[in-house]
Amino acid sequence: MDAYMGIDVGSVSTNIALIDDDNKVIETLYIRTKGRPIEAIQNALQTVGKKIDPSIVVKGVGTTGSARTLSQAIVGADVAKTEITAHAVAASHYHPNVRTILEIGGQDSKVIIMEDGVVTDFAMNTVCAAGTGSFLDHQAARLELKIEDFGDIALQAKARLNIAGRCTVFAESDMIHKQQTGHSKAEILRGLCDALVRNFINNICKGKRLDPPIIFQGGVAANKGIKVAFEDALGCEVEIPKHYNVMGAIGAAILAREHMEQQGGKTEFRGFEVTNFDYETKSFECEDCSNMCEVIKVLMNGELIARWGGRCGKWEITG
């Protein structure tokens, strides 16, 4: 059977999705990146390689996420596209009428506005990571809860509490203040969900029209408290797709399929054996001018396969 693979390497999680010719999902995988993207890719590929039917032939590979260039070099991908394009492609495939996509991941959050299956506008958080998965993780850890239980506890709250959500530093001191004056954990968590959503709508959506149908995806979509807070704020239902946490990978797989069908030819994929290769990245500071660019080299079994990071382009290939 033919299959196409999408790999989404983000700051917090590394996801893989395999789809067939009809974009039906064959296999998905969600693991934590833990700050070591190369190892995460290798582990993920190994797991998937073992799990799938040996008759499956990978015909094309797409990468996405903040480490898309690195993962493209390592696995030999045919396309590398941004998370925004990948998320939009995946969402519009499963929900052709979708108008608004909310996506909250580990380090960034985005809103994508669609019309007739085409992206017409998007925005992404820039200087500040307030209201992303990492902050929720951090708060859950501070309160000694499992992040999985966060949403359920928040929904038990009886009263609404106002938490300052503009900046995580302020949010945290506000939460501590509320906790010291005797508010329950549930109320504080619910307040945090509301604050995060308020911040998202004010700071990222900034005047964009959020029309239904609305889809909410990314790792944070698992948090029921945030979903309910979005529904309250937007006054309409917010849908969460079945594969909400690997939508980026699914999108990358669809893009890879479209690319291969258009271009024809053979995939660049190095095969699941890449897990046996020895990858190493080295970086050095170029001292030839005052820019002092940090150049990165990727070595596969001791052999240089990629190099980037310079401003002037001399460390890269020029053709």
Partner: peptide, 24 residues
């Protein structure tokens, strides 16, 4: 979408990465 290219260097695909071999 646009063809996959690296905006910093203008390289097209992972096939191009191979070309740096030996230029370490």
């Amino acid at each position: 979408p646009l063809p996959t290219r690296d905006p910093v260097t203008g390289r097209f695909s992972s096939a191009d990465f191979g070309a740096v071999e030996g230029k370490a």
